[in-house]
Simulated assay, not measured.
Amino acid sequence: MTAHTPADATGQTDRAQTDSARIDPTRPRIAWRALLRPGVLVPTLILLIALAWAIAPGLFTSVSPTAQVGTALQGPSAEHWFGTDATGRDMYARVVYGASQSITAAILAVLVGLVFGSIIGVTAGATGGRFDEALMRLVDVLLAIPTLLLSLSIVILLGFGTANAAIAVGVTSVAVFARLSRSQVVSVRASEFVEAAYGSGGTFFSVLWRHVLPNSLTPVIALAALQLGSAILQISTLGFLGYGAPPPTPEWGLLIAEGRNYVATAWWLTTLPGVVVAVVVIATNRLSQSINGGAR
């Protein structure tokens, strides 16, 4: 009979604990419980509803957003949940259809900032030297210009419209994505596994594609989720100022602007669309913070 030393017993115990941890069926349940927390579930449901409004608004209302369906300036009721505007159009239908303009434009803006900002940041971080310094000075110039002023200048140059407003908002976020992606690339380049890849005969582009990019763009994608709420707010601001979709096209910022002359007599024209914008933006920020916190 073989005797077991305390060291052997300790090793067997450690291996048993490791094996049990690998097959522990409660681990996925714990992850699912984390996803079902109110701080994650509620913002997710709000964003899903807003996205459903943008994709298929006809499923949520059968009323045309541009047709007169009732008496002008009717308050919220069972027939018209958000009341009617100064021409008798249903405000709930206009808010639902306005999600298509605002959310689609915000997604386009985030994509513009993500793509071009990542290209600039990755190029600067991967090449280094004077080229890196030149690109970062350009980024510093963009960061020095106030966001609203830069977006207004771009919209004036491109012309009014939702697509042009989205491009303008996207350009204002290029510098943020560029700075973050550059810092991540520089950090990953100094890692030992990247040096080992070069030592094994890897070329510049192969190491960049296989090792640097996959390990450096995750925080950039997380930033894109956070920027979505900011983009919705900026698109609505441009629409409020008259640089977005032209009337009578429903757009969240334009809806708030159209009701500002009736604040004293028809509060719902500005309050209810404003609440929708605020709730969607807060939900986006809250969800991105929850995801980032869970990732850490």
Rank of each mutant, 00 (worst) to 15 (best):
A3D: 13
A7E: 15
T10L: 14
Q17H: 07
Q17R: 14
T18G: 00
T18K: 12
I30S: 09
A31Q: 11
A34C: 01
A34L: 08
L36A: 12
R37E: 12
G39M: 00
G39W: 00
P43T: 06
T44N: 05
L47W: 10
I49Y: 03
A54S: 14
A56N: 02
P57E: 11
T66K: 05
T66C: 00
A67G: 00
Q68V: 15
L73G: 02
Q74P: 01
G75H: 08
A78T: 06
F82S: 04
D85R: 09
A86W: 03
T87M: 11
T87E: 12
D90K: 11
V96F: 11
Y97R: 14
G98C: 07
A99H: 13
S100P: 01
S100H: 15
Q101V: 15
S102P: 08
I103R: 04
T104P: 00
T104G: 15
A105Y: 08
I107D: 07
A109W: 05
A109N: 06
V112R: 11
G113W: 09
S118M: 08
D132G: 07
E133Y: 08
R137N: 10
L143E: 13
L157K: 03
G159Q: 12
F160I: 01
G161K: 12
N164C: 12
V171Y: 06
T172S: 15
V174N: 10
A175K: 03
V176C: 01
F177N: 10
A178S: 12
A178L: 09
L180A: 10
R182V: 06
V185Q: 09
S187L: 12
E195K: 11
A196D: 04
A197Y: 07
Y198F: 15
F204M: 03
W209T: 12
W209V: 08
R210H: 15
H211Q: 09
V212G: 02
V212L: 02
L213Q: 05
P214M: 02
P219T: 06
V220E: 00
A222V: 11
A225I: 01
G229H: 02
S230A: 13
S236K: 02
L238K: 00
A245R: 00
P246H: 12
P247W: 04
P248K: 04
W252M: 10
G253N: 05
L254A: 14
A257F: 08
R260W: 05
R260G: 02
N261P: 00
V263A: 10
V263N: 06
V263Y: 12
T270C: 06
P273V: 03
V276Y: 09
V277D: 02
A278C: 11
A278P: 05
T284Q: 10
T284H: 06
L287I: 09
Q289S: 14
S290K: 12
I291K: 02
G293M: 07
G293C: 00
G294C: 01
